[in-house]
Write a protein that binds this DNA or RNA. Structure first.
Length: 570
RNA sequence: GGGCCCGUAGCUCAACGGUCAGAGCAGACCGCUCAUAACGGUUUGGUUGGGGGUUCAAAUCCCUCCGGGCCUACCA
């Protein structure tokens, strides 16, 4: 039995994520976790909310709540939605947890001892009206290059020129609009990633089987310009993990917190501690410490492409720099973006479908199937309602759902609601079994390689094989001349339903559970060989005709939703 | 400005230097009637964005042009 540690990029606390976020990290991670569990392997699947930083503080202020309270509420909201999508986290933690506080501070101490932390004094813009330092993107003004009036402090959106906030004409705070800004000196800690460039570069070079998307982004950062740059890991904020050297004070850093991108990945580890502290597990170190049993763990991370630099460089720098035997990631699966109907999903403009809205409209399985079978693996992908309706109706309703319906209803009307006796497999059945044997192995291969779209296509082909078989065997015809043959055929078909439930569970867990229930069985063992898997339901075993497994999306619904999600979230 | 990715049938995608560039959907035709008017079979459809080059052989490698996207380190 293998052991799989699986993490999804942790979603930011601020607001509800859209389907593009979901398909880029949590959903494929869940697919992989469910698959590995299904294969009988030991899995620890972790995710959390990323709670620190300026946007969380501002959102809390806007909501009129203390930031801790706001984050606690939003965490519960996200957890509820995650349950709605059947994301099977072993634990859904919080980067603001006490465990993460301790661990982040401990890492900082270790890195400092290793000479990898440097204090630097720098000048940042302070807004008196807001009472805070402003990140470059929170400063707007007139572009000195093109005269655009809403240029951001880091870059002008009009002429794309990169800017420094001090270059802006009439700079103002994006938060309050205040122009009472002044540069102030402030001291910050930097992680000296540049000292680890060689080590990181060698490590990336050793990962020859990683997606190009992953390694090319890492190499760009390693080699661009002067090479990998040191990175500031502290901020002048109230909400965050206080800068401490382990248990001790960090002189000169009072009142400052660690930068979210330092503490967020460490939460992957802290989350395992939370999992234990919540009473769900026994020993987190055997997943994370190679000196305490984690040496045989395979660790896979899932994320959108925007997260790649932090997972390929910054976090590994933290791990390696600590000099402690922490588990390093073995495989990084990264995704491109999902676009919405000809443009981008937009959180600010409410364009596209957000996770909570998706569940209001249709059950999770519909979304899971479409999103996974169209996952943006090789390039950006596009969601359109036409494509969604077409794919879901055809694949889930017509191919799979209707197969279940035709088999169970035929059996009920001819033999009653139990697996009928009589007959034996002939050439046609042996051919089907051989075909399925090949396809199941191909499916496993794609799932092992995390080739999500290919796995979905193979699973669909497995469903289609059932319809092909039925059409060929035609039990409705053989029933008239040779009822025993019809009984054997339908017995096989009923067993196919159970097999489909087992194989499909990683993609569509609710439908799979419904099918298992209809077949009145809880044996969900992964098929070691197809012949045996197709004899699990014995003669005389009772079953029920399930309700419509997947209803179809109508043209009216499609048109309605298309209009509803075009922009401006209510 | 720099870097990376992408452009293949009406649509969504395969093919990663080597048999006539393949699937699914949509379209057309035929069959079946157990079923959610569902299923099965056959079939139409492509100068692989344009141009040039390397090679016995190019969708695939190189150059160039066109188009789209992403990243560029203080949003996270």
């Amino acid at each position: 039995m293998a052991r799989h540690l699986i993490t999804s990029a942790i979603p930011y606390i601020n607001g509800i994520k859209h389907l593009g976020n979901l398909v880029g990290s949590q959903l494929p991670a869940d697919l992989f976790a469910r698959y590995q569990r299904g294969r009988g392997h030991e899995v620890l699947f972790l995710c959390a909310t990323d709670e620190h930083g300026t946007p969380a503080e501002l959102a809390a202020a806007k909501a009129g709540k203390p930031v801790a309270e706001y984050c606690a509420e939003m965490h519960e909201t996200q957890a509820e939605i995650a349950r709605g999508f059947r994301l099977s986290f072993d634990h859904f933690g919080r980067s603001s947890s006490p465990q993460n506080h301790r661990l982040t501070q401990a890492f900082a101490a270790r890195l400092d001892e290793a000479g990898l932390i440097e204090e630097r004094v720098e000048t940042q813009i302070y807004s008196k009206a807001d009472g805070r330092y402003l990140p470059d993107r929170y400063i707007e003004g007139t572009c000195p290059n093109c005269g655009f009036e809403s240029a951001r402090g880091d870059q002008c959106d009009n002429c794309t020129k990169q800017l420094d906030p001090v270059d802006l004409i009439e700079p103002r705070s994006v938060i309050s609009g205040s122009t009472d800004l002044e540069p102030r000196e402030t001291k910050h800690l930097y992680l000296r990633q540049s000292k680890m460039r060689g080590e990181l570069s060698d490590w990336i070079d050793s990962k020859t089987d990683w997606p190009v998307l992953t390694t090319s982004i890492a190499r760009k950062w390693l080699n661009d310009g002067d090479g990998l740059q040191d990175r500031g890991i502290t901020r002048d904020l109230d909400w965050g993990i206080p800068v401490r050297k382990g248990e001790a004070e960090w002189p000169g850093m009072e009142g400052k917190v660690f930068y979210v991108w330092f503490d967020a990945p460490i939460e992957y580890i802290a989350c395992a501690q939370e999992w234990v502290d919540a009473g769900k597990g026994e020993d987190w170190e055997r997943w994370w410490r190679t000196d305490k049993g984690a040496d045989d763990v395979r660790y896979t991370q899932f994320m959108g492409k925007d997260n790649v630099p932090f997972h390929t460089l910054s976090f590994p720098a933290t791990i390696l720099g600590s000099g402690e035997p922490w588990k390093l990631v073995d495989y990084i699966k990264s995704f491109n973006y999902l676009n919405y109907d000809g443009g981008q999903f937009s959180t600010s403009r409410g364009r596209g479908v957000f996770m909570d809205q998706a569940l209001e409209v249709l059950p999770a399985d519909y979304w899971r199937w479409w999103l996974l079978s169209h996952a943006p693996e090789s390039s950006d992908a596009e969601f359109t309602w036409e494509n969604f309706q077409q794919s879901v109706n055809k694949d889930l309703a017509d191919v799979l759902g209707n197969f279940v319906s035709r088999v169970t209803k035929f059996c009920r009307s001819k033999f009653g609601e139990e697996v009928p006796a009589g007959g034996a497999h002939g050439d046609r059945e042996l051919a089907l079994i051989a075909d399925l044997e090949r396809r199941v192995r191909a499916y496993e291969g794609h799932m092992d390689a995390i080739e999500v779209r290919k796995a979905a296509a193979e699973l669909r082909a497995i469903w289609v094989a059932g319809n092909e078989y039925l059409q060929d065997a035609a039990p409705w015809a053989s029933f008239k001349t040779d009822p025993e043959a019809a009984a054997m055929q339908i017995r096989l078909a009923l067993n196919l339903i159970r097999l489909y439930a087992v194989l499909s569970a990683p993609f569509i867990p609710d439908a799979s559970a419904q099918l298992m229930e209809a077949m009145k069985i809880d044996d969900d063992a992964w098929p070691g060989n197809v012949t045996e898997a197709l004899s699990v339901l014995p003669v005389g075993h009772g079953f029920a005709v399930p309700d419509v497994t997947f209803r179809k999306i109508t043209d009216e619904e499609r048109a309605d939703w298309h209009a509803r999600f075009a922009g401006i979230r209510s």
